[in-house]
Simulated assay, not measured.
Amino acid sequence: MAEVPSRFVDLIATITGKIDGQPVEPALTATLNAEFPADGPVFTELEALCHQGTHDGWLCAREHGGIKFGRPVKPAPETHGFSVDVVEMTDIEGPHHAHPNGEIDMVMPIDADAAFDGTPRGWKVYGPGSAHHPTVRGGKALILYLLPQGAIEFTRA
């Protein structure tokens, strides 16, 4: 597997540095969409790196149940304690899980009509203690998850 490019980590650090100390809750969605809009340079460059990473094999290198996934970045000081997971999903409902500390999602449709949990291209934030079956409808999408302290709990619900 290829090494994660430092530029990928730098872009993540740019985002997490801007939101460091803010509550990870749905209201943070507006901040992320304003600071890092889907048509802006940070989102666009990070999206391009995600596509390159899936092609080169340093992202989404594992697959289970029709979902490609991977955690290229573990929680670390340079990412302000956030881990990074990236998944590739096509018209599928993923395994139920909970977010003890919340979850920040960067939604990158590959197919024009693809949406993650009803959200098209852009950001979606779940607060601490939330849970869901992550779902992509309308085609294929990449989703980048930022998890505070890397916390996620897969459940049977």
Rank of each mutant, 00 (worst) to 15 (best):
A30L: 15
A131L: 10
G102Q: 13
L46F: 02
W58L: 04
C60A: 12
R156V: 03
V125S: 08
I92A: 14
Q22H: 09
I143R: 04
F8K: 04
G122D: 03
L49H: 04
Y126H: 09
M89Q: 07
F69I: 11
P128R: 05
T16C: 14
D85Q: 04
T155F: 00
A151K: 04
L28N: 14
G127D: 12
V42L: 05
H64L: 05
A34M: 06
G102M: 11
D20Y: 12
P100F: 09
L49K: 00
L46T: 10
V136F: 12
P23I: 09
G94I: 01
T79A: 00
V24A: 10
R137P: 08
G53E: 00
A38L: 04
E153M: 10
F116K: 15
A34N: 13
P100H: 13
T155P: 09
E3N: 10
S83Q: 01
S83P: 02
P5T: 01
I110H: 09
K124I: 11
E88Y: 08
I67H: 11
G70R: 08
I19E: 04
P37F: 00
I104Q: 10
G65H: 06
A131Q: 06
G94K: 05
I15Y: 08
A27Q: 13
E45M: 03
H51L: 01
Q22E: 14
P109K: 14
D39F: 05
F8C: 12
A30Q: 13
F43W: 04
A114I: 07
I143H: 09
V4L: 09
L147I: 06
I143M: 08
R121I: 06
P148Y: 05
I15N: 01
W58K: 00
V136I: 11
H51K: 09
E88S: 12
Q52E: 01
V73A: 06
T119D: 04
H80K: 02
A98S: 13
R156S: 09
V24I: 15
A13G: 14
H96C: 15
D111R: 14
H97K: 11
A61N: 05
E88R: 03
T44Y: 06
D39V: 10
I110S: 08
R71D: 09
A38T: 06
H97F: 13
P75D: 05
V9N: 07
D117Q: 08
P148R: 00
A114E: 10
L46C: 06
H132P: 14
F116S: 03
A114D: 07
T79V: 01
G122S: 11
D117F: 13
G122N: 06
E25T: 13
I143Q: 02
E25I: 15
I143G: 07
V42F: 04
P120T: 12
A98M: 14
S6V: 15
D56R: 00
Q52L: 03
N101V: 08
H96Y: 06
H96T: 14
D105H: 09
D20K: 08
E47A: 14
H51W: 13
V136P: 03
V4M: 15
P5D: 10
F8T: 11
T44H: 10
C50W: 06
A112P: 07
G40E: 01
A141S: 15
I104D: 10
T29N: 12
S6E: 11
L32D: 04
G66S: 06
